[in-house]
Design a protein around this nucleic acid. Structure first.
Lengths: 346, 346
DNA sequence: CGCTAGCACTCGCCCGGGTAGACTGCTAAC
DNA sequence: GTTAGCAGTCTACCCGGGCGAGTGCTAGCG
């Protein structure tokens, strides 16, 4: 199916509907648009346009005598029709500038703050995915006795750390442990986490006893480093703002959303699919198979160091969100983060 | 003010009101109680008791012709009147037993799972506070170059890890770094984190330049280890269940709750105050100054290794919660955790 | 041919009144 | 002290009518 090209006025009308509906939360009628959109045509003409837009699937009616509200497709069209760029409100600009004024060195910390920032600026919930560590290199490994268990610790070149615990059998003395430690260090130091993980798994398949357990544990830690960051893989901030918003939603929708937010793997998949190499990306309502029918949209943008993509920041909110403002905020934050990361990397 | 001793029948009536209200969510009338509580008295007698209980502040009316609902004080009285012990439903027992059947070594991981478990079993949200590391000892410290920054890494005897990043000035060569690393190691290894922190701060006050920065960063990491665990200090699971429940609440209440859940320090303070040395503890509604008027209750219990308290697990839900079942679940989970921790510690 | 004015029509929302029902509180009897 | 009965109160629910917003259509105009 060929995407039909809309006339300029249809686009303007659609835009007016989206903006008005987002602003007020009420279905919007032809009169309102005629008055406010400044198109210089009467409400009757608008009505024709509205009927046409409805025919095309961009708008609906809750009922006969109500105004129009955008469909998911309508929001999509609206977003796609936006001029690139987009302006920040002054307050938002100041908030963003202020936040990044303090130098922060630990990226994970910065990102945590970033989710809060995004939430504060947009009134929805902020998201961030720390860099994947695909190109992370094993700087150091350590095998330590901790209580009556063993801890395998790995430190990546970019500062990521993870650890795994392994049961300590009674028949292993500290001499043997020392030797194991040296073996492990020799095996993995300097390798990329991807290679290290493969190597660990390969060795584990032939090893046995405590050595096997350790190799399995090691493989797991390399996997974690590769996935990016020690514990939490998707950072979420400002859920309270979202909960506020969600008060109007269908019950099932709210549950669905919170479940998704809690299951990092799900969010991760969503954000990964969504953010490939574009600037700002928008997923509206049920567009992504992952989202089911959840009435929420995600606005996200990647940040980079130099030219390599590091991670993603974004915002989750209702489909009826202020896309223009949110997109501008997300873009600005991603840009600042990229600058920061590039600088750190230099 | 002397706490008045209620008659046995008043207690029974109060209990009936709480149980019925929690079950149905509807205000409960005298008739219902007369039928169901099996007290062998007529509804008129119950009415007298209800009036008396209302007079005492344990019940209210939403309006004249409605049944009674418990006040916070009513829930409190109810909880206090519960026999110690309390039974688990079979399904809950199985779920809890099943969860702890798999041995898990990393306590942080266990606790994360525990919050999910508690949520699943109770239908509210699960909480866990990892052990505070007050008696944690510095096993090892490392100073590493990471990109163009420095990372100070500390490993505790109990397996906790934290790190801090410090800007690397241009005029520091790697020889100087090596010497700094040795100094730091010598200064802190083997010290308790509390002492280490104090020492770091003391030295920082006289040092300057990069050394000062490092000492400040080190103090921070020791503080984190003392507070318990690397990044997140309060683990929360099953928020979706709670969001479901919260659909009926006042808007402001929901916002308040989610804000509290997001701000770890707030939750932490709440849970710390609440869980001193008791078995299962219940905070109802606005009983705690921290909670404002939030219509939510927290059921929590400490877990121990041997006799020393380690951390806390609990559940957040509406004041109208099934206290009997939740308390039994929290108690059972805390007990299992204690067994697990004691075993690990041995 | 596109635009507009006007108008009939539709339909959800709001309002008031009336009613049924759920409880209470009281009183009088047991 | 307990109970039955009854009057009183107040809410939730239902119902119908009127209002008004907004549409869709048609006829006329530039």
């Amino acid at each position: 199916m060929v995407e039909p090209e809309l006339g300029a006025r249809k686009v303007a009308v659609l835009r007016a509907v989206v903006e008005e509906y987002v602003r007020t939360g009420e279905p919007v009628g032809s009169e309102t648009i005629a008055e406010r959109a400044g198109l210089g045509v009467s409400s009757a003409t608008i009505r024709n346009e509205l009927a046409a837009l409805e025919e095309l699937g961009y708008l609906t009616h809750p009922h006969t005598s109500a105004g129009r509200i955008p469909t998911d497709a309508g929001y999509r069209k609206f977003v796609d029709s936006l001029p690139p760029g987009g302006r920040l409100r002054d307050k938002q600009r100041r908030a963003i500038a202020g936040f990044f004024a303090e130098t922060m060195l630990d990226l994970e910390e910065v990102l945590k703050g970033t989710t809060q920032l995004l939430s504060r600026v947009t009134q929805y919930a902020g998201l961030a995915v720390p860099p994947t560590g695909a190109d992370e290199v094993v700087l150091r490994t350590e095998l330590l006795e901790v209580g009556n268990a063993l801890m395998f610790l790995v430190i990546g070149q970019q500062g990521r750390v993870d650890r795994a615990m392994v049961d300590r059998p009674d028949d292993v003395d500290s001499e043997e442990l020392g030797s194991l430690d040296r073996t492990l260090t020799a095996a993995f130091r300097g390798k990329s986490v991807v290679d290290a993980r493969a190597e660990a798994l390969k060795r584990a398949s032939t090893a046995k006893g405590i050595e096997r357990d350790l190799l399995v544990a090691a493989a797991e830690t390399f996997g974690v480093l590769q996935a990016g960051g020690a514990t939490h893989h998707v950072l979420i901030g400002g859920v309270a703002n979202l909960a506020d918003e969600a008060a109007h939603w269908r019950r099932e929708t709210v549950r669905r959303l919170f479940e998704a937010l809690e299951h990092e793997s799900e969010m991760l998949e969503l954000l990964r699919d969504v953010t490939i190499d574009q600037d700002v990306n928008v997923t509206i309502g049920a567009e992504h198979p992952q989202t089911g029918d959840w009435e929420a949209s995600i606005v996200s943008a990647p940040f980079r160091a130099g030219t390599t993509a590091l991670g993603t920041v974004g915002v989750v909110g209702p489909t009826a969100m202020d896309y223009v403002s949110v997109m501008a905020s997300v873009r600005a934050v991603a840009k600042r983060l990229s600058e920061l990361a590039t600088e750190l990397d230099a």
